[in-house]
Design a protein around this nucleic acid. Structure first.
Lengths: 131, 131
DNA sequence: CTTATATATCGAATAAGCTTGATCCGAATA
DNA sequence: TATTCGGATCAAGCTTATTCGATATATAAG
């Protein structure tokens, strides 16, 4: 009896114990495998960076402030009464994530939202609370 | 000389030095003040929690996996080959943020996306990269 | 009632993030 | 060229997150 091991990963072992049925387990495992294979690793990283940039209350406030138009670092730090280094740092994070765009204007750096999608995402996040 | 101080906050001082014109500075400051006043602090906190929950690659992967339907902790940890404690912990974070819902079923805890908006947010985040 | 299994929670170690003063850079101005 | 001012970067201290083994809880099965 040369028990043919068709088990292609530990996943099936686990699911087999779950369902008690090795055949069903294989099907379930294959389905899970298909789903996880569809998840692109680099896409995951990029999207996580976007969400991380939006996960800080101060940065979120900056984005909301920029809904009305372009502002320089000086105005933003003044509006929120925050140190310049802190404001600049958070703006660089937002910029790196692609959420804001920078425009140099003499000695000023003026920032604006890069996409309307940013506002849309904030609106959607607000919907998540009540449910 | 009882110099009437109409300056209602340090904001104007700063903007006055920026523009050189105290009158314009007051207007600008008032405008900024109006904008910042519109930003609700508690709304900010809630939205930040949602984004923070979505800012981890593993949690994002879980959300993507759940697009296809309900899964138990055991299946999720198996799909990604992650420890049970870690998987359970991340699911609790997603649940607390309102992104997933839990359904107890015997000794299983089955999780599903709570809103279609979750998928929409991930799609929007993906758009942010190229621009 | 004991055992096995699915999940949740705890705890300690490690890593990452935030804050802010200090410093550096670059553009405008005298 | 020296100075000033907006902004970026650095560095230290502090807080928070992530990870994962160990333990607790709870449900089901024997």
């Amino acid at each position: 009896m040369t028990e043919v091991v068709e088990i292609w990963d530990p996943c099936v072992e686990r699911l087999a114990r779950l369902t008690g049925d090795r055949c069903k387990a294989k099907t379930a495992a294959r389905k899970l495998q298909n789903l996880t294979d569809k998840i692109d690793e680099s896409e995951l990283t990029v999207e996580a960076e976007v969400f991380k940039a939006m996960s800080d209350p101060f940065r979120l406030a900056i984005l909301k402030l920029l809904r009305e138009g372009e502002l320089c670092v000086c105005e933003i730090m003044t509006a929120f009464d925050k140190p310049q280094s802190s404001t600049s740092h958070h703006l660089s994070i937002l910029k790196r994530a692609g959420l804001v765009k920078e425009r140099k204007d003499g000695k000023w750096s003026r920032y604006r939202l890069s996409e309307g999608a940013v506002i849309e995402m904030m609106n959607l996040a607000g919907l998540m609370t009540g449910d």
